[in-house]
């Protein structure tokens, strides 16, 4: 394996519950409790697990939406986990995030071109609106949208279209690592397939690395190269996709896989 793009070492995120009494004992909740993994350039690693297992928290600490308690996260050799927000800002362009809820992740008051254009200016990728609009138009076409939509507001779009716009916002910065947190979970099955294909195609075309966080094992099998199974804040099993799905070693992975309701199609019934 080549030099990893991202390597996480012993990442921890602990929360303290508030006590009823001023000097009462505080409880510690270990949302992420010592997680380590690596992602190679161009690789898709999925983080799979049930709600509350800490998978989303991993993504949020890596994008500095939440401050990690301890650990290291090296991006191209640079440890960014404990950086201050101003130190981390230049890295924001490289590490991007796709969110779950397409209805909540776009600001309802901003036009699409404002939402997509703002990051371009912030990171100095263009200097005039003409330049920005050209880039936005190309990006919108890449995600399968009419460039004319940039003049509109989010409420005019369906969930699938909004998620495409959300993906465009991320890809327009040409990041090296994309963290997708349940990026297709809120979509209907037929739309989910379209968006999933789009993400896969964009990933393969641009060769970016991806941390794909999901609870849906079917989706995970479709998109990833490697899979890490999380349970109660820890990774219980990590390996190549086929190893995890064909020959799961850990008991929890087996339980997850056996719980999934499956369609008995014609071939199996006959």
């Amino acid at each position: 394996m080549s030099e990893p793009l991202l390597s996480i070492v012993d990442l921890k995120k602990h929360y303290h519950t508030k006590s009823l009494w001023p000097f009462g004992k505080k409880q510690v909740i270990k949302a992420v409790d010592g997680v380590s993994f690596e992602i190679a350039p161009g690789e898709v690693l999925s983080l799979v697990g049930e709600s509350g297992c800490g998978k989303s928290t991993v993504g949020r600490t890596l994008t500095h939406l939440e401050q990690a308690t301890s650990g290291h996260a090296l991006f191209e050799g640079q440890d960014f986990l404990m950086m201050s927000s101003s130190e981390f800002r230049p890295l924001r362009r490289e590490i991007q995030m796709i969110f779950q809820d397409p209805f909540a992740s776009l600001n309802p008051r901003l036009k699409i071109e404002q939402t997509l254009g703002e990051p371009l200016f912030i990171h100095g990728l263009c200097s005039t609106w003409e330049e920005a609009r050209n880039k936005i138009a190309i990006m919108l076409e890449t995600v399968g949208m009419d460039p004319m939509v940039m003049k509109r507001h989010p409420h005019e779009f369906s969930g699938g279209q909004r998620q495409r716009i959300g993906i465009a916002r991320v890809m327009i910065l040409k990041p090296k690592l994309v963290i997708a947190d349940e990026a297709v979970s809120a979509l209907d099955v037929s739309i989910q397939a379209q968006v999933l294909n789009l993400i896969k195609k964009l990933q393969q075309d641009s060769g970016i690395s991806m941390l794909f966080i999901s609870h849906d094992l079917g989706v995970v099998r479709h998109i990833s190269n490697r899979v890490a199974v999380m349970h109660e804040g820890k990774i219980v099993e990590i390996g190549l996709k086929n190893e995890i799905f064909e020959a799961p070693k850990h008991e929890y992975t087996r339980k997850l896989l056996s719980s999934i309701p499956r369609v008995k199609t014609g071939r199996e019934l006959v």
Partner: peptide, 10 residues
């Protein structure tokens, strides 16, 4: 979430 998204855009 859109505020988170803006933060992530820098």
């Amino acid at each position: 979430v859109f505020v988170d998204a803006a933060v992530c855009s820098g």
